[in-house]
Simulated scan of single mutants.
Amino acid sequence: MTYSSNTPVQPILWLGVFGTIMGRVYAIPIGGLPYIDYITPGVLLQSTIFVSVFYGLTIVWERETGILKRLLVAPTSIYATVIGRSVASGVRAVVQALIIFPVAILLGGELLPRP
Rank of each mutant, 00 (worst) to 15 (best):
L44G: 03
L44K: 02
L44E: 06
L45Q: 09
Q46C: 04
Q46Y: 11
Q46I: 01
Q46N: 12
Q46K: 09
S47V: 03
S47H: 10
S47L: 02
T48W: 06
T48N: 07
T48H: 04
T48G: 12
T48K: 06
T48D: 03
T48I: 10
T48V: 13
I49R: 12
I49M: 11
F50H: 13
F50P: 00
F50W: 08
F50Q: 11
V51I: 15
V51T: 12
V51R: 12
V53K: 10
F54D: 15
F54G: 02
F54W: 08
F54T: 15
Y55N: 14
Y55F: 11
Y55V: 08
Y55S: 14
G56V: 03
G56H: 09
G56Q: 09
L57S: 12
L57G: 15
L57K: 15
L57C: 10
T58Y: 04
T58Q: 09
T58M: 05
T58S: 10
T58N: 08
I59A: 12
I59Q: 07
I59K: 01
I59S: 05
V60G: 06
V60A: 15
V60T: 14
V60K: 14
W61K: 15
W61Y: 12
E62F: 10
E62H: 12
E62A: 15
E62M: 15
R63N: 14
E64W: 08
E64L: 13
E64N: 15
T65Y: 07
T65Q: 14
T65I: 13
T65S: 15
T65M: 10
G66L: 08
G66A: 08
G66N: 09
I67K: 10
I67R: 13
I67N: 06
I67E: 10
L68Q: 13
L68M: 12
L68R: 12
L68G: 00
L68H: 08
L68C: 02
K69P: 00
K69V: 03
R70A: 09
R70H: 04
R70F: 02
R70M: 08
L71Y: 00
L71W: 00
L71N: 06
L71A: 08
L71I: 06
L71H: 02
L72M: 11
L72W: 00
L72H: 02
L72Y: 00
L72S: 09
V73P: 02
V73N: 07
V73W: 00
V73F: 00
V73L: 03
A74C: 05
P75G: 05
P75K: 06
P75A: 05
T76S: 06
T76W: 00
T76R: 06
S77G: 14
S77V: 04
S77K: 11
S77Y: 01
I78C: 05
I78K: 10
I78V: 07
I78W: 00
Y79A: 11
Y79F: 03
Y79W: 07
Y79N: 06
A80R: 08
A80V: 01
T81V: 14
T81W: 05
V82G: 01
V82A: 11
V82Q: 02
I83L: 10
I83D: 02
I83P: 01
I83C: 00
G84V: 05
G84M: 07
G84Y: 04
R85F: 02
R85D: 03
